[in-house]
Protein backbone atom coordinates (compact mmCIF):
# COMPACT_ATOMS: atom_id res chain seq x y z
CA UNK A 1 0.00 0.00 0.00
CA UNK A 2 1.14 3.50 -0.78
CA UNK A 3 1.96 5.60 2.21
CA UNK A 4 2.91 9.25 2.12
CA UNK A 5 5.33 8.78 4.96
CA UNK A 6 7.07 5.95 3.22
CA UNK A 7 7.25 7.93 0.00
CA UNK A 8 8.81 10.85 1.79
CA UNK A 9 11.32 8.60 3.50
CA UNK A 10 12.37 7.07 0.23
CA UNK A 11 12.58 10.54 -1.35
CA UNK A 12 14.23 12.36 1.50
CA UNK A 13 15.31 15.26 -0.67
CA UNK A 14 11.71 16.24 -1.39
CA UNK A 15 11.00 18.11 1.78
CA UNK A 16 14.06 20.25 1.19
CA UNK A 17 13.71 20.77 -2.51
CA UNK A 18 9.95 20.74 -3.09
CA UNK A 19 9.12 24.25 -1.82
CA UNK A 20 11.65 25.86 -4.13
CA UNK A 21 10.58 23.68 -7.05
CA UNK A 22 6.94 24.66 -6.58
CA UNK A 23 7.77 28.34 -6.27
CA UNK A 24 9.89 28.32 -9.40
CA UNK A 25 7.27 26.39 -11.34
CA UNK A 26 4.55 28.90 -10.52
CA UNK A 27 6.78 31.86 -11.24
CA UNK A 28 8.18 30.57 -14.49
CA UNK A 29 5.88 28.03 -16.13
CA UNK A 30 2.87 30.32 -16.50
CA UNK A 31 4.84 33.21 -18.02
CA UNK A 32 6.65 30.79 -20.31
CA UNK A 33 3.37 29.31 -21.53
CA UNK A 34 2.03 32.83 -22.08
CA UNK A 35 5.16 33.65 -24.04
CA UNK A 36 4.87 30.55 -26.24
CA UNK A 37 1.18 31.08 -26.94
CA UNK A 38 1.62 34.78 -27.57
CA UNK A 39 4.42 34.09 -30.03
CA UNK A 40 1.88 32.40 -32.32
CA UNK A 41 -0.54 35.32 -32.29
CA UNK A 42 -0.69 38.90 -33.53
CA UNK A 43 -1.55 40.15 -30.04
CA UNK A 44 -0.85 43.81 -29.31
CA UNK A 45 -0.49 45.55 -25.95
CA UNK A 46 -3.80 46.91 -24.71
CA UNK A 47 -5.98 44.72 -26.89
CA UNK A 48 -8.80 42.64 -25.51
CA UNK A 49 -7.64 39.06 -25.79
CA UNK A 50 -10.57 38.39 -28.09
CA UNK A 51 -9.06 40.72 -30.67
CA UNK A 52 -5.93 38.57 -31.03
CA UNK A 53 -5.73 36.04 -33.84
CA UNK A 54 -3.52 33.01 -34.21
CA UNK A 55 -1.09 33.56 -37.04
CA UNK A 56 0.70 30.23 -36.97
CA UNK A 57 4.46 30.52 -37.21
CA UNK A 58 4.37 33.85 -39.07
CA UNK A 59 6.22 35.61 -36.28
CA UNK A 60 9.08 33.12 -36.50
CA UNK A 61 9.11 33.16 -40.28
CA UNK A 62 9.51 36.93 -40.12
CA UNK A 63 12.61 36.46 -38.00
CA UNK A 64 14.32 33.73 -39.93
CA UNK A 65 13.63 34.94 -43.46
CA UNK A 66 15.12 38.36 -42.80
CA UNK A 67 11.81 40.21 -43.00
CA UNK A 68 12.68 41.51 -39.54
CA UNK A 69 15.84 43.21 -40.75
CA UNK A 70 17.12 44.01 -37.27
CA UNK A 71 16.88 40.49 -35.87
CA UNK A 72 20.06 38.84 -37.14
CA UNK A 73 22.03 41.94 -36.37
CA UNK A 74 20.69 41.78 -32.82
CA UNK A 75 21.69 38.14 -32.46
CA UNK A 76 25.12 38.91 -33.81
CA UNK A 77 25.91 41.86 -31.57
CA UNK A 78 24.43 40.16 -28.52
CA UNK A 79 26.69 37.16 -28.99
CA UNK A 80 29.66 39.39 -29.85
CA UNK A 81 29.05 41.47 -26.75
CA UNK A 82 28.82 38.37 -24.60
CA UNK A 83 32.13 37.02 -25.93
CA UNK A 84 34.07 40.27 -25.76
CA UNK A 85 32.71 41.45 -22.41
CA UNK A 86 33.19 38.10 -20.72
CA UNK A 87 36.69 37.64 -22.10
CA UNK A 88 37.94 41.07 -21.08
CA UNK A 89 36.27 40.98 -17.68
CA UNK A 90 37.76 37.60 -16.97
CA UNK A 91 41.27 38.55 -18.07
CA UNK A 92 41.25 41.95 -16.41
CA UNK A 93 39.55 40.54 -13.34
CA UNK A 94 42.19 37.86 -13.04
CA UNK A 95 44.95 40.40 -13.32
CA UNK A 96 43.45 42.63 -10.64
CA UNK A 97 42.83 39.62 -8.41
CA UNK A 98 46.52 38.66 -8.70
CA UNK A 99 47.60 42.21 -7.95
CA UNK A 100 45.39 42.26 -4.87
CA UNK A 101 46.58 38.87 -3.73
CA UNK A 102 50.24 39.80 -4.06
CA UNK A 103 49.90 43.21 -2.57
CA UNK A 104 50.72 43.67 1.08
CA UNK A 105 49.66 47.27 1.26
CA UNK A 106 47.62 48.40 4.23
CA UNK A 107 45.30 50.13 1.78
CA UNK A 108 44.13 46.81 0.36
CA UNK A 109 40.79 46.77 2.24
CA UNK A 110 40.16 50.22 0.79
CA UNK A 111 40.79 48.95 -2.73
CA UNK A 112 38.39 46.07 -2.10
CA UNK A 113 35.82 48.53 -0.79
CA UNK A 114 36.17 50.64 -3.92
CA UNK A 115 35.59 47.59 -6.05
CA UNK A 116 32.24 47.02 -4.38
CA UNK A 117 31.17 50.52 -5.47
CA UNK A 118 30.22 49.76 -9.09
CA UNK A 119 28.03 46.93 -7.82
CA UNK A 120 26.44 49.08 -5.17
CA UNK A 121 25.52 51.94 -7.48
CA UNK A 122 21.95 51.63 -8.70
CA UNK A 123 22.39 50.68 -12.38
CA UNK A 124 19.52 52.79 -13.66
CA UNK A 125 21.08 55.88 -12.09
CA UNK A 126 24.68 54.87 -12.81
CA UNK A 127 23.88 54.53 -16.50
CA UNK A 128 22.40 58.02 -16.51
CA UNK A 129 25.57 59.36 -14.93
CA UNK A 130 27.58 57.58 -17.63
CA UNK A 131 25.37 59.13 -20.27
CA UNK A 132 26.26 62.53 -18.85
CA UNK A 133 29.95 61.61 -18.80
CA UNK A 134 29.81 60.36 -22.41
CA UNK A 135 28.01 63.36 -23.85
CA UNK A 136 30.10 64.63 -26.72
CA UNK A 137 29.42 68.31 -26.06
CA UNK A 138 29.25 68.76 -22.33
CA UNK A 139 30.52 65.43 -21.05
CA UNK A 140 33.46 64.98 -18.74
CA UNK A 141 35.34 62.45 -20.87
CA UNK A 142 35.51 64.65 -23.92
CA UNK A 143 36.39 67.63 -21.81
CA UNK A 144 39.42 65.76 -20.48
CA UNK A 145 40.39 64.43 -23.91
CA UNK A 146 39.96 67.81 -25.55
CA UNK A 147 42.10 69.59 -23.01
CA UNK A 148 44.88 67.06 -22.69
CA UNK A 149 45.10 65.54 -26.16
CA UNK A 150 43.21 68.02 -28.30
CA UNK A 151 40.65 65.65 -29.75
CA UNK A 152 37.26 64.36 -28.76
CA UNK A 153 35.28 61.19 -29.37
CA UNK A 154 31.63 60.79 -30.23
CA UNK A 155 31.11 58.19 -27.53
CA UNK A 156 27.51 57.38 -28.30
CA UNK A 157 27.82 57.80 -32.06
CA UNK A 158 27.52 55.10 -34.67
CA UNK A 159 31.03 53.71 -34.41
CA UNK A 160 31.65 53.97 -30.70
CA UNK A 161 28.31 53.23 -29.04
CA UNK A 162 28.92 49.49 -28.79
CA UNK A 163 32.32 50.06 -27.18
CA UNK A 164 30.99 52.70 -24.83
CA UNK A 165 28.37 50.29 -23.55
CA UNK A 166 31.11 47.71 -23.23
CA UNK A 167 33.17 50.16 -21.22
CA UNK A 168 30.31 50.67 -18.76
CA UNK A 169 29.83 46.93 -18.50
CA UNK A 170 33.55 46.49 -17.82
CA UNK A 171 33.41 49.17 -15.15
CA UNK A 172 30.43 47.57 -13.51
CA UNK A 173 31.42 43.92 -13.54
CA UNK A 174 35.21 43.57 -13.76
CA UNK A 175 35.47 44.25 -10.02
CA UNK A 176 32.87 41.55 -9.40
CA UNK A 177 34.95 39.01 -11.32
CA UNK A 178 38.11 40.26 -9.63
CA UNK A 179 36.60 39.85 -6.18
CA UNK A 180 35.46 36.29 -6.89
CA UNK A 181 38.88 35.29 -8.17
CA UNK A 182 40.67 37.16 -5.40
CA UNK A 183 38.62 35.22 -2.87
CA UNK A 184 39.64 32.03 -4.62
CA UNK A 185 43.33 32.95 -4.74
CA UNK A 186 43.36 33.82 -1.07
CA UNK A 187 42.04 30.48 0.00
CA UNK A 188 44.49 28.43 -2.03
CA UNK A 189 46.91 26.28 -0.15
CA UNK A 190 50.60 27.27 -0.27
CA UNK A 191 52.11 23.76 -0.33
CA UNK A 192 51.74 22.99 -4.06
CA UNK A 193 53.46 26.26 -4.90
CA UNK A 194 56.30 25.59 -2.50
CA UNK A 195 56.74 22.14 -3.98
CA UNK A 196 56.67 23.51 -7.51
CA UNK A 197 59.19 26.20 -6.62
CA UNK A 198 61.55 23.54 -5.33
CA UNK A 199 61.11 21.67 -8.60
CA UNK A 200 62.15 24.86 -10.39
CA UNK A 201 58.87 25.72 -12.02
CA UNK A 202 58.59 29.16 -13.63
CA UNK A 203 55.88 31.48 -12.48
CA UNK A 204 54.06 31.01 -15.79
CA UNK A 205 54.10 27.24 -15.28
CA UNK A 206 52.75 27.63 -11.77
CA UNK A 207 50.01 29.85 -13.08
CA UNK A 208 49.15 27.52 -15.93
CA UNK A 209 49.36 24.20 -14.12
CA UNK A 210 48.46 25.12 -10.56
CA UNK A 211 46.44 28.30 -10.33
CA UNK A 212 44.16 27.78 -13.28
CA UNK A 213 43.20 24.18 -12.49
CA UNK A 214 42.65 24.96 -8.84
CA UNK A 215 40.50 27.96 -9.68
CA UNK A 216 38.70 26.35 -12.60
CA UNK A 217 35.40 25.97 -10.77
CA UNK A 218 35.41 29.65 -9.88
CA UNK A 219 36.51 30.66 -13.35
CA UNK A 220 33.58 28.77 -14.81
CA UNK A 221 31.29 30.35 -12.27
CA UNK A 222 32.39 33.85 -13.19
CA UNK A 223 32.16 32.90 -16.83
CA UNK A 224 28.62 31.61 -16.38
CA UNK A 225 27.30 34.59 -14.46
CA UNK A 226 28.93 37.12 -16.75
CA UNK A 227 28.18 35.39 -20.03
CA UNK A 228 24.48 34.99 -19.36
CA UNK A 229 24.06 38.46 -17.90
CA UNK A 230 25.92 39.98 -20.83
CA UNK A 231 23.59 38.11 -23.16
CA UNK A 232 20.58 39.56 -21.34
CA UNK A 233 22.06 43.05 -21.17
CA UNK A 234 19.31 45.63 -20.98
CA UNK A 235 19.48 48.56 -18.52
CA UNK A 236 22.78 50.08 -19.56
CA UNK A 237 22.17 49.96 -23.28
CA UNK A 238 18.61 51.10 -22.85
CA UNK A 239 19.60 54.19 -20.93
CA UNK A 240 22.65 55.04 -23.02
CA UNK A 241 21.40 54.55 -26.57
CA UNK A 242 17.98 52.86 -26.64
CA UNK A 243 19.55 50.61 -29.28
CA UNK A 244 20.81 53.36 -31.57
CA UNK A 245 22.24 55.14 -33.43
CA UNK A 246 20.84 53.22 -36.35
CA UNK A 247 20.59 49.79 -34.82
CA UNK A 248 24.21 49.80 -33.75
CA UNK A 249 23.42 48.70 -30.20
CA UNK A 250 20.08 46.97 -30.52
CA UNK A 251 20.88 43.88 -28.47
CA UNK A 252 18.32 41.08 -28.41
CA UNK A 253 16.66 42.21 -25.21
CA UNK A 254 16.39 45.72 -26.62
CA UNK A 255 14.88 44.32 -29.77
CA UNK A 256 12.30 42.54 -27.62
CA UNK A 257 11.67 45.78 -25.80
CA UNK A 258 11.38 47.87 -28.94
CA UNK A 259 8.80 45.49 -30.35
CA UNK A 260 6.85 44.97 -27.14
CA UNK A 261 6.90 48.35 -25.44
CA UNK A 262 4.07 50.77 -25.81
CA UNK A 263 5.51 52.54 -28.82
CA UNK A 264 4.92 49.39 -30.86
CA UNK A 265 3.08 47.08 -28.50
CA UNK A 266 3.61 44.13 -30.86
CA UNK A 267 3.57 41.58 -28.05
CA UNK A 268 3.15 38.67 -30.47
CA UNK A 269 6.23 39.44 -32.52
CA UNK A 270 8.22 40.36 -29.43
CA UNK A 271 7.36 37.03 -27.81
CA UNK A 272 8.88 35.19 -30.75
CA UNK A 273 12.13 37.12 -30.32
CA UNK A 274 12.01 36.54 -26.57
CA UNK A 275 11.69 32.82 -27.22
CA UNK A 276 14.81 32.90 -29.35
CA UNK A 277 16.65 34.82 -26.64
CA UNK A 278 15.45 32.30 -24.09
CA UNK A 279 16.71 29.38 -26.15
CA UNK A 280 20.14 30.97 -26.65
CA UNK A 281 20.41 31.73 -22.94
CA UNK A 282 19.43 28.19 -22.03
CA UNK A 283 21.92 26.63 -24.45
CA UNK A 284 24.80 28.79 -23.24
CA UNK A 285 23.99 28.37 -19.56
CA UNK A 286 23.44 24.62 -19.85
CA UNK A 287 26.81 24.21 -21.54
CA UNK A 288 28.63 26.31 -18.96
CA UNK A 289 26.88 24.73 -15.99
CA UNK A 290 27.89 21.27 -17.19
CA UNK A 291 31.50 22.38 -17.55
CA UNK A 292 31.35 23.98 -14.14
CA UNK A 293 30.01 20.85 -12.45
CA UNK A 294 32.66 18.77 -14.16
CA UNK A 295 35.39 21.13 -13.00
CA UNK A 296 34.01 20.84 -9.48
CA UNK A 297 34.01 17.06 -9.61
CA UNK A 298 37.57 16.90 -10.87
CA UNK A 299 38.61 19.02 -7.94
CA UNK A 300 36.95 16.91 -5.29
Amino acid sequence: MFSVKGFLQRNGHLKYVAPVMCLMMVLSIIPTIFLIVASFTNYQLGWDFSRAKFVGIDNYIRLFTGADTAFWHSVLISVAFMVVATAIELALGFWIATLLNNSESKLKPLAVGIMILPLAMTPSIAAQVWKLIFNSEYGLLNYILQNTFGFSVTWLGQDMAFWSILLVDLWQFTPFVALILYAGLRSMPAEPYEAAAIDGATSWQMFRFLTIPMLSKLIYLALLLRAVDALKLFDTAFVLTQGGPGNATEFLSLHVFRLANAQNGLVGRASAVAMVLLVIVMVVSRFLIKRQRRAAEVML
Partner: peptide
Amino acid sequence: ILSQRFLPAMAVVIP
Protein backbone atom coordinates in the same frame (compact mmCIF):
# COMPACT_ATOMS: atom_id res chain seq x y z
CA ILE B 1 16.18 26.05 -10.71
CA LEU B 2 19.33 27.80 -11.80
CA SER B 3 17.87 28.53 -15.21
CA GLN B 4 15.24 30.75 -13.57
CA ARG B 5 18.05 33.09 -12.66
CA PHE B 6 18.67 33.51 -16.37
CA LEU B 7 15.12 34.32 -17.52
CA PRO B 8 15.27 37.68 -19.29
CA ALA B 9 13.08 40.04 -17.27
CA MET B 10 11.84 41.72 -20.42
CA ALA B 11 10.36 38.42 -21.57
CA VAL B 12 8.30 37.64 -18.49
CA VAL B 13 7.22 41.01 -17.21
CA ILE B 14 3.99 41.28 -19.21
CA PRO B 15 2.64 37.88 -18.12
